[in-house]
């Protein structure tokens, strides 16, 4: 019964004092939030802790959700700001999440991924690994578009940029993803294309 409630219905009831209902929202969005956080933060433990904080933040500021956008769009905005704050606290240079430093860090990871590419047995695992090789900004865009069920306009709201710029950035992100897949998983890609 409670599982069939819409996000807005749950929110209005939580705001009226039915705190346990918030668990439905957590259940519904935990995988999306956790995946998005993992695109920014290395290590599952840190990502899980940060994801919990994000849900606590969302709960505390639930009264600020005015229903002008989807709950998921509002929640992903909290995810993004929380991740950026987390990275800043970690003394990482996050002036731009697409900056060179991040790339350098990722480049150093690439050799490990290359060595483990044989372990990428399933297609999904391969794509996930390739996404992890992208910059956090690109990985986040692809995750929001394909897994977060967000439109270009909604992604624009989350990131704070124009939908047309989102389109261009998404196009480039997909291009880079294909390059990574061709570079590190060429064998698997050939297998898929040969099928």
């Amino acid at each position: 019964m409670q599982g069939s409630l819409t996000d807005t219905e749950i929110i209005s009831r939580v705001l009226k004092g039915e705190q346990p209902l918030f668990a439905n929202l957590v259940e519904r969005y935990q995988n999306y939030v956790f995946t998005l956080v993992l695109r920014f933060v290395e290590g599952r433990e840190d990502a899980e802790e940060l994801s919990q904080d994000i849900f606590v933040k969302a709960y505390r500021s639930l009264a600020d959700f005015r229903g002008e956008s989807k709950f998921s769009t509002w929640l992903y905005t909290i995810v993004r700001t929380s991740c950026i704050t987390f990275l800043r606290k970690r003394k990482l240079d996050t002036t731009s999440i697409d900056n060179e430093k991040t790339y350098l860090q990722l480049e150093s990871q690439e050799s490990n991924f290359k060595a483990n590419s044989i372990e990428a047995k399933s297609r999904q695992a391969m794509v996930n690994q390739a996404i992890n090789l992208l910059s956090p900004g690109d990985a986040q865009l692809i995750t929001l578009f394909y897994k977060g069920e967000q439109t270009l306009e909604e992604i624009g709201t989350i990131i704070g940029i124009d939908p047309n710029t989102v389109k261009v950035k998404l196009h480039r992100a997909r291009q880079r993803l294909r390059e990574k897949m061709e570079k590190y998983f060429s064998h698997e890609v050939r297998d898929i294309q040969g099928e």
Binding site: S51, Q124, R174
Partner: peptide
């Protein structure tokens, strides 16, 4: 890209929150 799986947190995640 559509087929990719989402990452899952631990089983206790909802309870912790």
């Amino acid at each position: 890209l559509h087929q990719t799986d989402l990452e899952q947190p631990s089983m206790r995640f909802t309870r912790n929150v």
